[in-house]
Nucleic acid binder design. Structure first.
Lengths: 203, 203
DNA sequence: ACTCGCCCGTGACACTTGTCATGCCGGCGC
DNA sequence: GCGCCGGCATGACAAGTGTCACGGGCGAGT
């Protein structure tokens, strides 16, 4: 009986190393690769085809949520666990929609990580129960994928023209999406809209 | 020759466990206790008198910085290492004033933690070199009080007119201050300026 | 086949924002 | 006294932003 092969994606190098050390202590688990961002994780997925992917959400290059969706689509044999600081219902909802099988908080005891890896590998779901209840009660993400993508860039300080170039759209269209997002969120401008969306976990 | 005894303080349980696992892999180090907040760390210090204390900054009950100062005053034999996410020069300065011997970022490779523990135990200082340079070289806060006051509000999403009303200035003047702040920070617009200022700890 | 939602685009308009030239005033050094 | 600089203010202009009306295409459901 061979060990469960795990890929860890986490942008803070020391935490990445520490998590790897944590799982290395379990005889039935093996950390087959590590990645410091979403893009590197995709490469590692292709090369290693691990049984389980454990990923943070907030990473450079590609967030853990889009990584989860990519992984789901291209490597369905790999189960995804989101491991994050943030107990935002919006994150959980999007994680589940992206096909994640587990959602774990960094607040939880260390032992739960190894246990979660085993359980998703058996095909079970592992969701923080407190968070699951809260997620059901909260209002759903009103933003479309495009709106989120564009609002995120606007929140970083990019201009409409810059965003248009980045996502290959016309500037007018970008302004339309922003206008739509602003009105959906009841904000007065793109800055406030980005702030609200971030706080609700929709970015 | 006995192992170096280490106390770890960190509020995120999983990270705490992972860091402990990381140090447990080093034969010359021993994690003698763990604490989930500053108050618990003080109790553990009293009970265990460890050689080295590794602590996060942002914790409930008592921050790592005040914990460092307390430890320095009451247990001078224990050397303190601050381990944090934030590369803010202001934090580093306060950490050193509190008597910390090490300041390490969670961004750094995992191997550096064990090495840092050994070095502070030998009486050396361990300061992230990048951060040390930045802390001394960085022009301390180019913003005037007015600029800060106004840029902060702009970062919250308020318009120039709203800000003008709040601080009893003309709208044109508000725009002038913002323009000045934007150029001082090398930003392209108020959003980016606010982001940069926040990141540098100037807001 | 039809509607509905999301996607993408255009053009026009009013408003906001960023920049610049210009000025007043009070403190500071010489 | 004099120049000089930093804080504060104004007005004017160009560029960027938010809104609206309107158009097209595509896929999912009824």
């Amino acid at each position: 009986m061979s060990a469960i092969r795990v890929l860890i994606a986490e942008d803070q190098a020391m935490i990445l190393g520490a998590l790897a050390a944590l799982l290395a202590g379990e005889p039935d688990l093996a950390v087959c690769a590590r990645a410091a961002n979403g893009r590197a994780a995709l490469l590692a997925l292709t090369a290693e085809r691990p049984d389980v992917l454990v990923t943070d959400i907030e990473m450079p290059e590609m967030t853990g949520l889009t990584l989860a969706a990519e992984a789901r689509a291209r490597f369905p044999a790999t189960q995804v666990i989101i491991l994050t600081t943030f107990a935002r219902p919006g994150y959980l909802r999007r994680a589940l929609e992206a096909g994640a099988r587990g959602y774990l908080l960094k607040d939880r005891p260390a032992a739960e990580l190894a246990e979660a890896v085993r359980r998703v590998h058996r095909g079970e779901r592992v969701i923080d129960p407190e968070l699951a209840a809260e997620a059901w009660a909260s209002d759903p993400d009103p933003l479309t994928e495009r709106e989120r993508q564009i609002l995120w860039r606007a929140g970083e300080g990019r201009s409409s023209a810059e965003i248009a170039a980045e996502v290959h759209l016309s500037e007018g269209t970008v302004r339309n999406y922003l206008s739509e997002a602003i009105s959906k969120l009841g904000a007065a401008n793109r800055i406030e809209a980005a702030r609200i969306a971030r706080q609700k976990g929709w970015l």
